[in-house]
Design a protein around this nucleic acid. Structure first.
Ligand code: FES
Ligand code: FES
Lengths: 144, 144
DNA sequence: AAAATTAAGGACATAATAGTCTCTTTTTTA
DNA sequence: TAAAAAAGAGACTATTATGTCCTTAATTTT
């Protein structure tokens, strides 16, 4: 569904968001520990998020990654997915035709498209803010 | 979503099914041409379908692949997916946790699971027979 | 100013997926 | 019975995704 890089990116972003809610920055090392991901690889994907303007990075001692608190509910999971994996989740043909095209559909198109659309809508309307609450309350988890 | 191998397998199976409806066998060469897939690679996946008992293969001149006509509506797309990709589409955690577990859910679980379940149900209730009709009527396509 | 801390970036390494090639086996046809 | 037609099987190659390492740049602390 999502690439490994994208999975790490979303988990990392949720952790960064929850730290940001408390006015803290999250260092790469902390992130990798808290989401149980390979540090160097995670660094790569965070660089992409940073270049895409989704998170803010600060170098140097006491640096790390953060999200502007007032942005927490504006940042949607879809932005992370697009930044890392592009839009193929939403646009690819389920059976691998060159393009998913209403006018030249594969046999599975009519059945598949509603599911894909539902996924798209959910990802587009879920914000980082929406996903941090469960973490804080201990109802949801970022590792194991 | 599905692997390349699985995409080819589904497309191939639909073509084989439509040929079987007319009492014809489909040769590998015909299949690869009709679904525009790499012949040798497609051969691999067809072997798996054959070993899984989803399609019947016959060697020798006039051999090829076929589906028992009375089986056409019993063979569900889910069987092909399971045979080629296994059940990870249905069981993996969307954010890459080791397992998707109701009792230890990731932050996206509650939103993601309904979509995955919908996909599962659609794939489980769609038969090869369901997908051949559009092909025959020219409403759906297996290539380009 | 020097040392420590932290992210950025690029080259490299490994693993998984996708795809090819060649030879073998089975069956039919000439 | 020999040749041709087709799938089966395994070794091999290519490409992409995943992951590591090392050096550099920026910032803070001492
Ligand atoms: S054409 Fe295949 S999913 Fe749309
Ligand atoms: S635990 Fe992540 S999708 Fe179920």
């Amino acid at each position: 569904m999502f690439s490994k890089a994208c999975e790490y990116a979303i988990r990392a972003a949720i952790f960064i968001a929850s730290e940001s809610e408390n006015g803290r920055r999250a260092s790469l090392k902390d992130i990798a520990r808290e989401i149980d991901s390979p540090e160097a690889f995670t660094a790569k994907t965070l660089q992409k998020l940073s270049r895409s303007g989704i998170i803010i990075s600060t170098k140097g001692a006491h640096g790390g990654f953060q999200v502007a608190r007032e942005e927490l509910e504006n940042i949607k999971i879809s932005q992370i997915v697009i930044a890392i994996d592009g839009d193929k989740v939403y646009t690819r043909c389920s059976l691998g035709l060159q393009a998913c095209n209403e006018d030249h559909p594969c046999p599975f198109h009519s059945r598949f498209k509603p599911v894909r659309t539902e996924l798209k809508e959910i990802v587009e309307k879920t914000s980082l803010r929406d996903l941090t609450s469960g973490l804080v309350s201990g109802d949801t988890f970022l590792k194991i």
